[in-house]
Design a protein around this nucleic acid. Structure first.
Lengths: 232, 232
DNA sequence: GTCTATACACCGATAGAC
DNA sequence: GTCTATCGGTGTATAGAC
């Protein structure tokens, strides 16, 4: 009885994985807005109605793909940090994470676009994508936190209107950091993905050719502005 | 004869404008990937086949929308600079342009997504979008150029691998600037749109509430990193 | 330049047999 | 859980009359 349920559940997980894999292929070919349960079923040799046993609606499939994408890039960032940690300096660890995230984005442009590009029209993400979505940011914050212990970022000013946001942010995510630093980090976070998005979405076409070097340079400068410095 | 052609051409321009306007509405409702000549025609009370006299295919309509969007945000940037120029300092002018671009993006999120979000699957932009696409960057570069004349940006290093790109860039777009500065500017350009995209695409939800102040602060810091300083 | 009509394909979702 | 069949739509694109 237990083994039977085990087998059934195993089968279910396998089919679910196959559906998502095929859906990712279609994401690349047609885009998220045109993701179609019917086409997935056709390609898998199933009846379209059978898919509804796995995903109650098209949006649920989309949610699964979005969650998976956030988890994939989040895990990429976490692994990169773990791999770099052995004796590396703060800047090296920061760069290792940034480079790994960029690499993932370039290798999975459509999944990247799904999470960091234009929102899918008519789709609103449920609350449960929030946690996976935060993983990359948390990795970068942990590097920053190590980098300057609790000393914070030197001579950084914060407009009065941002104090409330900054204090809430610090409390939520990095209680040991000064609010100014937490706020500065948010800007750097967005700017980092600006660099990646411009590259993935083709805005560096005929503008920058040596993109590896360019990204490493820019990501290093970003680290500086948030107080992650070369010295270990 | 001349007046007849004039009337015809006027009618043609008006219908063309109506088609694009309706298409922009659908862009907001359904997204670029689902933009449909038929739906546009239906809403306009025309036969779908009639639209083919104005746009030979769906992609041509899309190209027109993309070009228009680049031109709209480009003109926004140019106007903001013109309005701010009267006696304003360099930083004020830089901020005026950034704030205007952000404002346009927030007011036209779908048109923004069309040009700075995920590429439309199956669509490749023709060469003639390149010039409108450059307008915002050229405005920002002109502010930067004014800001430091030909002195360039102090103590800025450039990795060896980026020298070729940097020199080509400077030659193409700002011959009076040192290559290091031109290259730094590209990074700032991408980072600025990173800030805007994160806000427009909803990544600051429950992260930053005081977004006006946040953006102004971050854009000002960006100006600093590219050598645009407060003093006029 | 606009219309009707048409060819041919697609979609999400559900009902009900097995 | 999978199937067939079906409802009620959607789309691009063209042909040919006016």
């Amino acid at each position: 009885m237990n083994t039977m349920r085990g087998a059934r559940e195993r089968a279910r997980t396998e089919v679910t994985a196959a559906i998502k894999e095929e859906a990712r292929k279609q994401l690349a070919a047609e885009g998220a807005a045109k993701l179609s349960l019917r086409a997935v079923a056709r390609e898998l040799g199933m009846a379209s109605s059978a898919l509804y046993r796995y995903f109650p609606s098209r949006d649920d499939l989309l949610t699964a793909l979005i969650t998976d994408a956030y988890d994939a890039v989040g895990e990429t960032a976490e692994s990169a940090l773990a791999a770099a940690s052995a004796g590396a300096g703060h800047l090296e660890r920061w760069l290792a994470v940034c480079v790994a995230v960029r690499r993932w984005a370039l290798d999975h442009p459509h999944e990247y676009g799904l999470i960091y590009g234009s929102p899918v029209p008519g789709y609103t993400a449920p609350q449960d994508t929030a946690q996976p979505a935060a993983r990359v940011a948390l990795v970068l914050i942990s590097v920053a936190r190590d980098a300057y212990g609790s000393r914070g970022l030197a001579k950084q000013r914060l407009p009065a209107g941002l104090r409330t946001d900054a204090e809430r942010l610090a409390a939520e995510v990095a209680p040991d950091l000064p609010p100014e630093t937490a706020m500065a980090f948010v800007a750097v976070w967005a700017q980092l993905f600006g660099l990646i998005s411009f590259e993935v979405f083709g805005h560096f076409h005929r503008v920058v050719e040596e993109r590896d070097a360019f990204f490493a340079h820019a990501a290093g400068e970003l680290a500086r502005t948030v107080g992650v410095l070369p010295e270990a």
